[in-house]
C-alpha cells in the first residue's frame, strides 16, 4: 500500500475526512515552503498538495496566480520543487505529497526525466491541470511505471462517459472541482455537490476530494460530510500572502487547525452526538 492509500484507509477506519491543503512551492521562498510543509503536518493535515509555479496558470484565480508569480521571482523550477520534497522527506516519511501544476514545465523536462526525479524525491502523485484524460495515455503509462498516482479533476459538467474514462486511469484519489470557474471563486451549492458525488461514486471507487470555493470552517464541515477529502487552496495561500514573515507559520498553523477542527466535528450517521460534547 502506498502513502496515499494508507492515509485514506486509516481515515476510513476512523470515519474521518481527509484535510488536504494546497500551497505553492517557493511562495514566498524555498526554505519557507519546507518549513510550511512541516507546519501543515503538525497542524494535522493528511496530505499536502504542492503547486508547481507556472507563468500562465490559466485555471487559477488571482490569489494563486499571484503566489505563482511570487515563486517565479525566485525562478523556482521543477528541480527546485523536487529538492523541497526531498528535504521534507528527510524527516517525514508518512505524509503523502501530491504535485499540482501545468503541463509545460513537465513537457520541457520530458516525461522520463520527470517521473525519475519525482519518484526519487518522494512525490506520491501528480495532478496536471491541462492534461485531461484524452491527452494522458502516455503520461499515465510513465507515471504507472514509477508508481506515482495520476490524479484527475472532475467537474460539475463532466459527462458519464468521461467519468468512466477517469475511473480507469485515476489512482490515489480524484479531485472534484465543486463549482464552475477558477480557484478562489466563492459560490458553492452543497446540494449540487451531494448529487454529483453520488453520480461519481457509481463509477469512481477511489476516494473523492472536493475543492474550489471552500473558504471557511462551516463550508469545510459541510463538504466533509459528503466527500472523502476537503481540499483548501486559495484561503491558505491568502494567509501566506498577508502574513509577515515572522508570523507566517503560526498564522497558517492556526488557520489549518481551525479547519481541521471543523472537519473533525462533522455530523455523520455514526458520530453526530459525540461531537456536540
Amino acid at each position: 500500500m502506498n502513502r496515499i492509500e494508507s492515509v485514506f484507509s486509516r481515515l476510513k477506519s476512523q470515519d474521518k475526512t481527509a484535510l488536504i491543503p494546497f500551497i505553492t512551492a517557493g511562495d514566498p521562498d524555498s526554505a519557507t515552503t519546507v518549513a510550511l510543509m512541516h507546519q501543515l503536518t503538525q497542524s494535522k493535515v493528511d496530505l499536502i498538495e504542492l503547486g508547481v509555479p507556472f507563468s500562465d496558470p490559466m485555471a487559477d484565480g488571482p490569489t494563486i496566480q499571484r503566489s505563482s508569480e511570487r515563486a517565479l521571482k525566485h525562478h523556482i523550477s521543477l528541480k527546485d520543487v523536487f529538492a523541497m520534497v526531498a528535504e521534507f522527506r528527510k524527516t517525514d516519511q508518512d505524509t503523502p505529497v501530491v504535485l499540482m501544476g501545468y503541463a509545460n514545465p513537465i513537457e520541457a523536462m520530458g516525461y522520463g526525466n520527470f517521473v525519475e526525479a519525482a519518484s526519487h524525491s518522494g512525490v506520491d502523485g501528480i495532478l496536471v491541470v491541462d492534461y485531461p484524460p484524452e491527452e494522458s495515455a502516455e503520461w499515465v503509462r510513465c507515471l504507472n511505471e514509477k508508481e506515482i498516482s495520476p490524479i484527475f479533476l472532475l467537474s460539475p459538467t463532466t459527462s458519464e462517459s468521461r467519468i468512466k474514462h477517469v475511473a480507469e486511469l485515476a489512482k490515489g484519489y480524484v479531485y472534484y472541482v465543486s463549482l464552475k470557474g477558477v480557484t478562489g471563486a466563492s459560490h458553492l451549492d452543497l446540494q449540487d455537490v451531494s448529487n454529483k458525488l453520488s453520480q461519481l461514486r457509481a463509477h469512481i471507487k477511489i476516494p473523492i476530494g472536493v475543492g474550489f470555493g471552500i473558504r471557511d470552517g462551516q463550508t469545510a464541515r459541510s463538504i466533509a460530510e459528503r466527500a472523502d477529502a476537503v481540499v483548501i487552496g486559495s484561503r491558505i495561500v491568502e494567509e501566506i500572502e498577508h502574513s509577515r514573515a515572522a508570523d507566517l507559520l503560526a498564522n497558517v498553523g492556526t488557520l489549518v487547525e481551525s479547519l481541521r477542527h471543523a472537519i473533525d466535528t462533522k455530523s455523520g450517521p455514526s458520530s453526530d452526538k459525540e461531537c456536540e460534547i
Binding site: 490559466m58 503541463a103 491541470v129 491541462d130 491527452e135 479533476l153 459538467t157 464552475k180
Partner: peptide, 14 residues
C-alpha cells in the same frame, strides 16, 4: 494541437 485544458472547460469545448 489537441485539447490541453482543465476539466472545467471540456464540456464547453465538446
Amino acid at each position: 494541437g489537441g485539447t490541453f485544458v482543465a476539466e472545467t472547460l471540456i464540456s464547453a469545448l465538446d
